[in-house]
């Protein structure tokens, strides 16, 4: 099992990793101020929308130290949510405990989980600068999970900005 968590979204509503009926969950550690996270952002939202009706939950978490990086404040997160930039919950990990427990290191850092635990960890695809790749590594992992197959490429190197620890 993946490490369970419950975190508040930008409106304060608690959201948990596990939810009955979900075939898989994508957990993306991301943030507001990282160019890598921003470059991949739309591709990741497309994945969230494309797999929503196939039982895939899509949770995005900001674990950065907002005191030193005000662009990652809850208010700044909420502004992006209110602007319609997120296709799923954007969660606040102010204690950074979830990022530490999951071993997240950069933004974006992408994890796919199913009933057995984490089955993919890495980057969305091989080039932040090429939108035509459509987060293909993440999509391939989800397709494997949904087909009941082992994930063929279970790990790639996450690329991005270091998580800003306290």
């Amino acid at each position: 099992m993946a490490l369970a968590f419950t975190l508040p979204d930008t409106s304060g509503t608690s959201v948990s990793l596990h939810e009955d009926g979900a075939a898989a969950a994508v957990v993306v550690f991301t943030c507001n101020h990282c160019p890598y996270a921003l470059a991949w952002h739309e591709r990741l939202q497309d994945v969230a929308r494309d797999y929503a009706d196939r039982g895939v939950r899509f949770l995005q978490i900001n674990s950065n130290n907002a005191e030193k990086y005000p662009r990652d404040s809850v208010d700044a997160m909420r502004a992006r949510v209110d602007a319609g930039e997120f296709a799923g919950p954007y969660l606040v990990d102010s204690s950074q405990e979830v990022a530490r427990a999951w071993g997240a290191t950069v933004t974006p850092d992408v994890f796919v989980t199913d009933a057995t635990g984490v089955v993919y960890r890495g980057a969305p695809d091989g080039d932040y600068n090429d939108p035509s790749l459509r987060a293909e590594w993440l999509r391939a992992a989800l397709d494997d999970v949904l087909a009941g197959r082992p994930v063929a490429a279970a790990e790639t190197k996450p690329v991005g900005c270091s998580i800003k620890w306290r």
Binding site: H33, C34, P35, Y36, L38, Y69, C161, K164
Partner: peptide
Amino acid sequence: PSLTCRIY
């Protein structure tokens, strides 16, 4: 000034 990645 900040220790961060710059956005272009």
